[in-house]
Nucleic acid binder design. Sequence first.
DNA 1: AATTCATATAACATCATACAACTTAGGGCG
DNA 2: CGCCCTAAGTTGTATGATGTTATATGAATT
Lengths: 243, 243
Amino acid sequence: MDTPFRKVGSDKLLSGKIEESIELAIRRKDYKAGEKLPTEGQLCDLFGVSRTVVREALRKLSARGLVVIKQGSGAYVNELSSESAIDSINLFLELTDDGSLIFDIIRARQLFEPEIAGLAALNRTAAELDELAGNLEALKASSMEDIDGQTIIDIRFHSLIASATHNNVVALLMRPIFDNMPKVKRSIYAKNNLGYLTHDKSMVLKFHEDIYEAIKNADPREASHAMLAHLKATEKNFKDSLE
Amino acid sequence: MDTPFRKVGSDKLLSGKIEESIELAIRRKDYKAGEKLPTEGQLCDLFGVSRTVVREALRKLSARGLVVIKQGSGAYVNELSSESAIDSINLFLELTDDGSLIFDIIRARQLFEPEIAGLAALNRTAAELDELAGNLEALKASSMEDIDGQTIIDIRFHSLIASATHNNVVALLMRPIFDNMPKVKRSIYAKNNLGYLTHDKSMVLKFHEDIYEAIKNADPREASHAMLAHLKATEKNFKDSLE
DNA sequence: AATTCATATAACATCATACAACTTAGGGCG
DNA sequence: CGCCCTAAGTTGTATGATGTTATATGAATT
């Protein structure tokens, strides 16, 4: 017989226990990024369980992005990319969207991005400034009809600024917001004609240039102001498109 | 040589394909939260694969928080909580922390929370105001030595304000920041004596009261200002603790 | 009649084995 | 030396058997 009282929260499933155990080893950096974990067979011996259990534990870890499993080779600690974490957030936002997501995104950007632009104006390096300049050129060169292409460039512009804060937390948390920009843009343009779009591209370009100039001049106040103006215009576009 | 172009997203592994297929069904809301998925056996027949494959697919989905598997009962679509998504973010932040995490958190709060407090001042309901008042009382009543308890109350205070923006995106994205507040606080208090703590509690209380008053008065400017003052003080505490 | 209890059935959990598909390393060959 | 090819190792899939847990059914009790 086993213990009469099972500690709460202690995963009773073997695969869960082993998942925890391996996760802990990774968190402790016993196995560092890129390193190979023991083979399935070795893990079976170590934990004294069947291959089924070990495989399911590894599968769970891979689903969470902690490890990658390569057939014929082995299981490796993942060079941690933020993708799986971001994906989780995006999935949650999508599944719990009660219709307010797009507007929440728009308002969240108004809250966060002006401050971000201000900090970026203070912290940006020369190299980051160059990247922003290149991004402006790319937007200029894009064709009017290529909305998706412009959106990608747009996202890149704002992501660059978030990165230029040199604050990993800020850059990471903005990702789900940026990832949803295509959805916002599609919503705005769904009911509008092409003539409107050409106007929009030049408008976006103008705002981006203003923001760029302020960041170039290391002027946080103006960067923040220009960013807010940009996002207010976006909100207006969105509201207009609702009618 | 493998094929030069593999259809993107087409997982070559069976368990991956089936995972995708079930995930898609959930995203399409073919199966809604709480509903029971087909049994392992049924899924085997539907997809024409072995139980091994089906089980591993379900394991991955459960690791990502999309389904919960109950022994003897079945697999159910998870009432989606944000927990697993937040956990992913927190794990990523922990594993990629190069030592700057705590400071990034402190600065990120300074960027975001003043604006959040301002919006909360505009959007808060009377009920939310009551909850904030109750939180202040709880902080007053807490014992000086119970740092962990105070931290929990502190987190609750700031979370309530984020929720009072009535912006789901904002509330969600702030969660990882709040979850890391204990780490920040421990770092600050690690080298300080008890006398300092008593002073700190009264200081935090004062700031919280200022913020509360501004939100109560529906004064976004003042709420934002009071919040920034609070967070600047936190930063000062942190910097002092480094010496 | 309602409740409790025991039992049967269904569903998931684990184990063991076998074979297929893939990777990698090492040896043979030109 | 470099290429190819084989062989061993590792993961992927399939299958069958058995253990554990949940649920429904119906009998027994009050």
